[in-house]
Amino acid sequence: MASQDNTHRLYGVPHSLYTGIARCYLRTQGIAYTEIPTTDADFHTRILPIIQRSIIPVLETPQGDIVQDSLDIIDHFEQQGVRYSAYPGGLLQRVLSVIIAYYGTQAMLPHAMHYRWSYREAQEGFLHDQFAAGAGDAMADKIMARMNAYLPQLGVDAHTAPEIEASYLQLLDTLNAHFAEHPYLFGGRPSLGDYGLIGPLFAHLGRDPVPANLMKTRAPKVFRWVERMTAPGLDTPEFPGYGDAYLADDGIPATLEPLLRQIADEIFPMLTDKLAFMDALIQEHAPEDGQPVSAKPHQRYVGVVETAFRGVPVQAGVQPYLLYVLRKADALLAEGSPHDQARVREALAEWGLTAALPGERGYTVDRRDHIEVWKRT
């Protein structure tokens, strides 16, 4: 259904991690949109049959095209040209922005869900109000119970909870120091990395009462960045004369290096264990090119792996989607000259992030007809 004006339709809800990413991007770019809840009749009668599963966000363009997934929504507009590109000009900055986006959209899911559901009693009124607003009062408790049940798949339990909280406090301290000197991760405009982090740091950790109060009191510069990311355009009055460009010469500010080292400390060995699980899955089942990654479109996990988070043993579900995200880093690196590729790999090795690049494995994850599928390479 084509729109009568130039307004896009964004199907989502305020408390959704991935909707928040798309919303921030649309606001930054000044793209006209209307946000529509999933209770809207159009979502059920027109959108769900197209995307084949209940998932948000979904963007409908004025021409009637459908784009599902926050990162795909960003790339949809990047291909058309926007004022503030989310992809820095420097190769190292571009690759790191994808790795940080992976950290925010995948590795921080335990942080987001732990602070939302492990502290449910302390923030029940707020959570019920938010879920009821998005799905109706009758469905709110059912959806909340289902979301609460995801904790084990994310590796959230009594053993990992203290490390998840220690990780969050470390992240707040690191980002607070960085955003005291820079408005965004790589300079004067948000990168894909900023958009990846805003997902959990807005929808869950920046809105739910318990973690949001912690952010405000411990890391006010981070809370201000959250406000900045959710404002129209670039909201940087604290940085007069800073400009809206990325840092020159592919520069990485010293204040960002602690974040990169924390990411390396936390995504491994979980990431390498999940990739090894998928390698074995492909070896055993030899799926055809284009075959869906799971038996049913709504099933995003393909198994469970024994791994560790910050040295604590844990079981975690394996989502092939993680490979869909990180392949962007491989693709961007391949665009660079041999000299620049070597320079980037050297920097990644220094921060312990070399294994964040999946590299050639004979397969990858693609999206066709809005569903993740195996792609043979």
Rank of each mutant, 00 (worst) to 15 (best):
A219G: 07
R343C: 15
A329M: 08
L17E: 03
L92R: 15
I73N: 00
Y184P: 11
Q153H: 12
I73Y: 01
G188F: 02
E288R: 13
D194H: 00
L109H: 13
Q291A: 06
Y11N: 12
V302S: 05
G362L: 02
F268R: 03
L357C: 10
M270T: 13
L256W: 00
A149L: 09
E360T: 09
L171C: 04
A280M: 11
L151F: 00
A355D: 13
T28R: 14
E257C: 07
R343H: 15
I282Y: 14
D75V: 04
R83H: 14
P152W: 03
L275D: 09
A276R: 14
L234S: 08
F268H: 04
F43V: 13
R83A: 15
K221P: 10
P88H: 08
A331Y: 05
Q79T: 06
G290H: 09
Q4Y: 13
P258M: 08
T307N: 02
G303E: 08
R310P: 04
I51K: 12
R310S: 00
P240R: 06
L323C: 11
A280V: 12
T236W: 02
V293M: 06
T28L: 12
E335N: 07
E60C: 15
P110M: 07
V95D: 10
G336F: 03
Y11M: 13
V325I: 11
L275Q: 14
A331M: 06
A86S: 12
P358I: 08
I73Q: 01
P320D: 10
R218G: 03
I51A: 13
P190I: 04
V58Y: 09
V344S: 12
Q63Y: 10
V210F: 14
D235W: 05
R116Y: 02
N176M: 10
L172A: 02
E372K: 14
L10G: 01
D235N: 07
V302P: 06
A264N: 00
K274P: 11
A203D: 07
V58P: 07
T230S: 12
T38K: 15
K296F: 15
A316Y: 13
P183K: 13
G290R: 11
E335D: 03
L172E: 04
G311M: 10
G89S: 11
A334Y: 02
T28K: 12
P269E: 01
I74V: 02
V318W: 05
R367E: 13
V318Y: 09
L192R: 12
P88A: 11
Y87V: 14
Q130F: 01
